[in-house]
Amino acid sequence: MKPYASPRACATLAALILALQGAAAQADGPWPNKPVRVIMPFAAGGSSDLVGRQVAQSLSAHYGQQFVAENRAGAGGNIGVDAVAKSAPDGYTLGIGTSGPLANNKSLYHPMPFDAEKDLTPIALVGEIPVVIAVNPAVKANTLAEFVALSKSSANAVTVSNPGNGTIGHLATEYLSIHTGAKLQPVPYKGDSPAMVDAMSGSVSAVVAPVTSLIPNIQANKLRALAVMSKTRFPGLPDVPTANEQGVKLEATVWSAMVGPAGLPKSVVSSLNAEINKYTASPEGKAKLNSLGMVPLSGTPEQLRELMRNEATKWQEVVKSARISIE
């Protein structure tokens, strides 16, 4: 005798089959059809985190799906970016990385938990925060050339604070010393603020750090900015010349970009790239990123890949020459 199935059981089974088919169709539907996780590799509240959250918010509005920011800080950004690199390449885990974990850290951390060139998909550049060199007002130098000359004539190396060992401020100071012959002594601190405070007090002669945290004290004449280390002048300090303008070929910035795991579908990459470029070029995007001290940028995924490769090579030479290491 065949087992009997009641009409109610048949109806329940049919509903279950339809639900499963619907779920499968949804999973295979247009991206994104569920929330997207956006990993921020630094602590909440910092400039990099705030930039990432602005981008995530704009993407949520555009796609009609939540792009949820998740902080995974540690190891100079490596922990968060490693989580991106090891995620499924389905478009539902992305990251907002910076020049540290996407390029510079390759030479500083041994071993690296991921290979940025092989394990990540470049998506879109968001913007950059230039590095600035500023001196205590008592230092007798008004230009970068005068500062270099002063260091060469001093009996001891001129002390220059930075936000920490291996940070872009540290690397830029070593680059300046290597390429100009300046006699400088980098002094690492734990963050921008203490490095800046000791430069203002005269405990050290100068500070090299991302411009964002230094702007108020430069404008208040508590520090004298000698140069910004970007291709063009920084809009927030239009009277401060670039290092390039002063004959020193030095560019050092903290740039931010969206990346995903290797193998991310081209359709997802193209869609995100177009939308992020649209945001960074919009009046709203420019205003919000400018408020965080960032200069908005745009470009193709291929240009971002080239930037990652070139920056890694440039700073590798500095790390090797200066014998910088992070334990």
Rank of each mutant, 00 (worst) to 15 (best):
M1P: 02
A5K: 14
S6E: 12
P7F: 11
P7T: 13
A15I: 10
L18V: 13
L18H: 01
L20R: 09
L20A: 06
Q21Y: 01
G29E: 12
P35Q: 07
M40A: 01
S48I: 03
A56T: 11
S58P: 00
S60I: 09
F67R: 02
E70N: 07
G74S: 03
A75W: 02
A75V: 04
A75P: 00
A75E: 03
Y92P: 04
G95Y: 01
T98E: 06
N105A: 08
K106R: 14
F114W: 04
A116D: 05
K118S: 10
L120C: 10
L120V: 02
I123R: 09
V126A: 00
E128D: 14
V132P: 03
V132S: 00
I133A: 00
P137H: 06
P137F: 03
A145E: 13
F147Y: 14
P163I: 01
N165D: 04
N165E: 11
N165S: 13
G169H: 09
E174S: 10
S177I: 06
I178Y: 03
P186G: 09
M200G: 03
G202V: 13
S205V: 05
A206M: 10
A206I: 13
V211W: 02
L223Q: 13
R224G: 00
R233E: 10
R233N: 01
G236W: 06
T242N: 07
G247E: 09
V248S: 05
V254L: 05
W255A: 07
V259S: 02
A262L: 06
L264F: 02
K266G: 05
Y279L: 12
S282T: 12
K286D: 04
K286S: 06
K288M: 11
K288Y: 03
M294K: 02
L297N: 15
E302H: 06
Q303E: 15
T313M: 13
T313A: 15
K314Y: 15
K320S: 11
K320H: 12
A322Y: 05
R323G: 06
